[in-house]
Simulated scan of single mutants.
Amino acid sequence: MKKSHEVLKSAITPCGAKAVAAEMGLSQSMIYKWCQPSGNPDCSGSENPLDRLLEICRLTGDDSAINWLCQQTDSFRVKNPAAEAATDIKQSVLGNTQVILKEFSEMLEAVTESYANGQRIDLKESERVRKEWDELKSIAEQFVCACEQGLFDHSN
C-alpha cells in the first residue's frame, strides 16, 4: 500500500508542484514537502492533508469526511468489512454466495417497489435503494476480501 506522500506525489507530478501551489495559494516548497516522508528528523517532509484527514478520522471515530470527499469526486466508498476464516469451506462459500444473492434480491425489490409506486423513484425511495445497494456492495466486498486472503483455500 502506498504511503500518503507517495499518493500525493503521484497525483501532483503530472500537473506540477508549481501549478498546484499557484492554484491553491500555497508555496511550492509546501507542496514539495507534502510529497516527501514526514515524521522523521532526517526527512524534510511535512504532515500532508491526507495524513491530517486520517488523524481527524482516527481522533473522532467519524469517517464522514472521507465519504464526503468520495462524493465530491463522483465516487462512492465501500468499507472493507472484516473477513473471518471459514471452518467448512464448501458451506462457507455457498453460504456467502447465497447472502450476496439475497442482498441483490433485496436491492432489486427496493427498485421494483419504488418504481411500481407511480412509475417513478422519488428521493425518499432512492434512499432505500441506496441503502440496499450499499449493503450488497459491502457483503460482496467481504466475500472478495476473504477470497483474496485465502480464507476459502485449505489446500495448503
Rank of each mutant, 00 (worst) to 15 (best):
S92N: 12
G118L: 05
D63H: 09
G95Q: 07
A65S: 10
N117R: 11
K124A: 14
G118N: 13
G61S: 05
L69D: 08
G95D: 11
P41M: 08
A116D: 15
A86M: 00
A146V: 06
E148F: 03
D42C: 06
M107W: 05
I66N: 00
L50F: 03
C57D: 05
L54Y: 08
A83G: 15
A110F: 04
Q71D: 14
D122L: 03
D51I: 05
D63F: 09
S64F: 04
K131G: 09
N48H: 01
A83K: 00
R128L: 10
V78W: 01
S46F: 06
L101M: 07
P81D: 15
T97C: 06
V78Q: 06
K79P: 07
Q98C: 11
S92G: 10
K124H: 09
L108N: 14
S92H: 07
L53M: 04
E103V: 05
G95N: 07
F143H: 13
V93W: 02
L94Y: 10
R58E: 13
D134F: 00
I100R: 02
N80G: 07
S92A: 14
E106P: 02
N117F: 04
R52M: 04
V93G: 03
I56H: 08
L54C: 06
K137Q: 13
C57E: 06
V144P: 01
T73Y: 05
I121S: 04
E113I: 04
F76E: 15
E125L: 02
D63R: 02
E109W: 05
Q142N: 13
V99Y: 01
S126E: 11
A86T: 06
F104E: 14
